[in-house]
């Protein structure tokens, strides 16, 4: 054999063997994916998030999920002030909702808040903190255990003319810690609106030298102590959180807000 022939033969063998292994890989992928297809519908994230699989696992424990645009998450296109991004969640026409989990796929702390509407409407609005552009989602669990997931992308890259809010925390924040202000609007044609604000720094623990310090639980009760709804909140909820919820106030005798932060400070206030 001449040298050139040997070289040719060598490279041909190499090519064939790489083709073979390529086929094997493709074949095995095809087999795996066809097994998956047989078990469940393929789930295509409408927001095309790189972290969907991760949040599905971390926040919804890989439980059954459907993407459902009856779960409406409203955020502005652009987070003008990343410390205060308004979000509202409305669930309409899916039946009774046991729990709504709000989360942001790409936030350093992904959980925002879990809302158990109980005896009030499956609606909640408040503001939260965001680090960068991310999908913001709500997953609403119906009685059959299925999570109905809705959401939208939030762009957070710049602040424009808006001067950054500096020195937000007042020097006397300790004096007002846990103070609650609230107001109820009776409305004729739709459920009544309750808005309440709680004074709290809601520190994430991600700012250097400031440990995490945030409200963990909030309960709305009637005056006999019966639970109407409850909330598990996480670090990304904005400082001095301001909540809006909807309810039929005439069904309840008085409304009391109780709660606790991660340092054990208690919140207890009659709202009505």
């Amino acid at each position: 054999m001449t040298n050139s022939k040997i070289l040719k033969k060598h490279s041909v063998i190499k090519q064939i063997s790489s083709l073979k292994s390529g086929f094997k890989i493709i074949l095995s992928f095809w087999l795996i994916s066809s097994v998956n297809l047989a078990n469940s519908q393929p789930l295509v994230d409408p927001l095309d998030s790189p972290s969907w699989n991760l949040v599905h696992k971390l926040i919804l424990s890989n439980e059954t999920v459907v993407f459902d645009d009856r779960v409406k998450v409203i955020v502005p296109d652009m987070a003008e002030d990343p410390m205060n991004v308004p979000v509202s969640v409305t669930v309409d026409g899916i039946g009774e909702i046991e729990e709504i989990r709000l989360f942001a796929d790409l936030n350093p702390i992904k959980e925002i808040l879990n809302f158990h509407p109980g005896k009030i409407e499956p609606f909640i609005a408040f503001r939260f903190k965001v680090q960068n552009s991310t999908p913001v989602r709500a997953a609403a669990r119906t009685k059959d255990g299925v999570w109905h997931v809705g959401g939208s992308w939030l762009d957070a890259t710049g602040g424009g003319c808006t001067a950054p809010s500096l020195g937000r925390a007042l020097d006397n924040w300790v004096d007002t810690l846990g103070d609650v202000k609230s107001r109820l609007w009776s409305r004729a044609d739709r459920p009544d609106r309750l808005r309440f604000r709680i004074m709290h720094p809601m520190d994430t623990g991600l700012a250097p030298g400031i440990p995490e310090f945030y409200i963990e639980t909030l309960e709305l009760k009637d005056k006999h102590g019966e639970l109407l709804a409850h909330i598990e909140s996480y670090q990304p909820v904005s400082e001095n959180p301001f909540f809006s919820v909807d309810l039929e106030s005439k069904l309840f005798q008085g409304i009391v807000l109780t709660g606790r932060d991660n340092n054990g400070n208690l919140i207890n206030q009659v709202l009505q």
């Binding site: 409203i74 509202s88 808005r195």
Partner: peptide
């Protein structure tokens, strides 16, 4: 009227 900011935006 008790609107939340996200409603005022719309």
């Amino acid at each position: 009227e008790g609107l939340d900011i996200s409603e005022a935006l719309q």
